[in-house]
């Protein structure tokens, strides 16, 4: 089955990105496909490569990049939300790309299920 994922909250402040990540990992382990992860609202902050968590904490951004590389997942950052928050191509972590809200709607059309994680 193809899953579309929406993440509305930034890393570390709220559990949304953690839950979404663990959901995606479990779905992939079960042989499902993650069609796209769409980062929306403050969720665009998950895409900043300038993130530097303390050594003993999980690296949420790097974790998404790694998952995307290993499973060829499309990580899309909402352009309007990103520009409002200073997320641009030059500080985008590997595996992420910036695009429009049409990508969210397209995921809703193409995926078998859409799951939203947020506050």
């Amino acid at each position: 089955m193809k899953f579309g994922i929406v993440i509305n909250e930034g890393p570390y402040q709220h559990q949304a990105s953690d839950t979404a990540y663990l959901f995606c990992k479990a779905a992939l382990e079960k042989g499902h496909e993650i069609f796209r992860v769409f980062f929306y609202h403050d969720g665009v902050n998950n895409a900043s490569r300038l993130t530097e968590p303390p050594q003993d904490d999980r690296n949420i951004v790097a974790r998404w990049s790694k998952l995307a590389e290993e499973h060829k997942i499309d990580l899309v950052v909402c352009v309007a939300a990103a520009l409002r928050r200073g997320i641009k191509d030059e500080n985008l972590a590997p595996g992420f790309r910036i695009s429009g809200l049409g990508q969210l709607v397209e995921a809703g059309i193409q995926a078998d299920r859409m799951v939203t994680f947020g506050d």
Binding site: M1, L22, A26, K30
Partner: peptide
Amino acid sequence: YGGFVDLVA
């Protein structure tokens, strides 16, 4: 989390 995935599916 696997059960969560099953529920959505």
